[in-house]
Design a protein around this nucleic acid. Structure first.
Lengths: 278, 278
DNA sequence: CGACGACTTGAGACTGTTCAAAGGTAGTGG
DNA sequence: CCACTACCTTTGAACAGTCTCAAGTCGTCG
């Protein structure tokens, strides 16, 4: 039985709630939502303008703040800085992290903001968010916002791909493979927002959090990390990862075979709302 | 290492390809797409009409037919009869089933049919499908199709919920819990299309397929099934499941805490395409 | 310095895997 | 009608991967 995990929300929350303002890298270097959307679609000057105007909501949130409760209707927001995750708790306290959210990601659903969320969203580092309704309204304005629409759909699709990756990791990969695969995925996602420097990037997750995402115990994450380091696959210290042998890591994690397309894609989403052109 | 699973598509496909017409229950009792959408949203007479007219595509597909290849653009279809699954194969042949598709489910994406699929879809039983473009076109016609839109969004959302369930099962539940949880989920989904009779329903999955969905070996699925039977939790023989102790099963599988809403919900999806009313 | 959180280490137990083989069952063809 | 085949299920035994429990270390911050 996989029981007895510390509930991440039950206790010890008092100290956390005053860690604002945060210590590190809280200023978005450049608006990550804009950068990410541009990696998916061509944006017009008007659309860029709308995104530049994204207003940060409040003064940010401390670690372990619940940014969105489970089964709650919540207007969509963008994550501007910091990391968060979607998670679910089992009755006995076991936690499963469904996916990580990094700057540029959507909190809640842009495509259907009126449906209750399927799981909770929790801040893993101090976090800054922005109201997404501002941007959504632009889709409906007088000016065309096709690029924005395409980009948001592509992000939605990328999120689904991430979920499939998570299922495959948990279902059919070993601890060693899971760890490397997750790191590759995060590398790829941070790359989309320009927060990768060569082969290294910030990685502010504790081993406990990693375990809850990878379906492993804290202890086993620790040992697997040591193994990975011993094999000189990656380096991981002080909240920063460097991938030492990209080729080998991709090979082991079976990354290539399902890798996302790189670069700007020419997506032209339609469907529910534009079915004629099929 | 989790290696050496039989590739489900590599061999032995010759015999299968002539099993048409299939042996059992291939006539949809009632159009499952219609029934399912009505369980999510109020439909107008016009909308019901559109759905009644769903034309079956061809004469159906045999077991193990690939209904949609990975990374391929494919116009969306509905599954009218039979079971399928979304799956991914690792380089060494390990298979992970991402989710099961039952009658009424969408193959591909209704919301964005022009994006390449993130994984393959494979028939698990003989299968009948219908072209969904027929229905999508109705969304764009002169007549309002708000109910249809709401229903399709709700289905999309339900699919996402199913994915989250899958992640939690694989990441944080034991074999015993996983098995029961999956059975409850399928029970709930078949219930939406009226294919549950009391507490029992058709369940045409082999133990190998179950293993690939639950992230377990065939052998362990077998032993877990026996355990579950010994405990008189469920009965499973001849492709049919009966849940003997619903309460106990829900308790063990931690089902209640994240259970879907039952009954007709009053969803009014907006978002990308109707942002003003936020 | 003391406290707290994160990381590390060891030992033993348990869950689930692999390999191998045997039994069951339903279509197929003689 | 029966033997044959293919697939599915069941069983046993050894083993590997991962977990739990329990300490102990390290670093940071007040």
């Amino acid at each position: 039985m996989n029981t007895g995990f510390k509930s991440p929300l039950s206790a010890g929350n008092t100290r956390q709630s005053i860690i604002w303002p945060p210590r590190l890298e809280q200023k978005p270097r450049q608006n990550p939502v804009l950068v990410r959307l541009q990696s998916f679609a061509q944006l017009s000057a008007y659309e860029i303008d709308v995104l530049q105007g994204l207003p940060a909501l409040g003064r940010g949130h401390a670690v372990q703040t619940e940014l969105c409760a489970e089964r709650r209707v919540q207007s969509p927001r963008f994550l501007l800085a910091g990391w968060a995750c979607q998670q679910r708790l089992l009755g006995d306290g076991r936690r499963q992290i469904i996916r990580f959210l990094v700057p540029g990601d959507v909190i809640g659903s842009v495509v259907d903001p009126t449906t209750p969320s399927n799981c909770a969203v929790v801040a893993l580092t101090p976090v800054t968010v922005a109201d997404a309704r501002h941007v959504l309204r632009a889709l409906d304005g007088t000016q065309s916002a096709q690029g924005l629409t395409n980009g948001l759909w592509a992000m939605h699709n990328a999120a689904e791909l991430g979920l499939y990756n998570q299922v495959v990791r948990l279902g059919r990969q070993t601890a060693y493979e899971r760890l490397l695969h997750l790191i590759l995925e995060i590398h790829s996602r941070l790359n989309e927002i320009g927060q990768v420097d060569g082969e290294s990037f910030d990685f502010p997750l504790t081993q406990e959090v990693l375990g809850d995402a990878l379906g492993l115990s804290l202890v086993h994450v620790n040992r697997t990390l040591q193994q990975v380091r011993r094999d000189r696959m990656i380096e991981l210290r002080a909240g920063r990862v460097t991938i030492l042998q990209p080729k080998a890591v991709q090979e082991i994690a079976d990354w290539d075979s399902h890798k996302q397309d790189d670069g700007v894609s020419s997506v032209h989403p339609r469907g529910l709302f534009d079915a004629k052109q099929l």
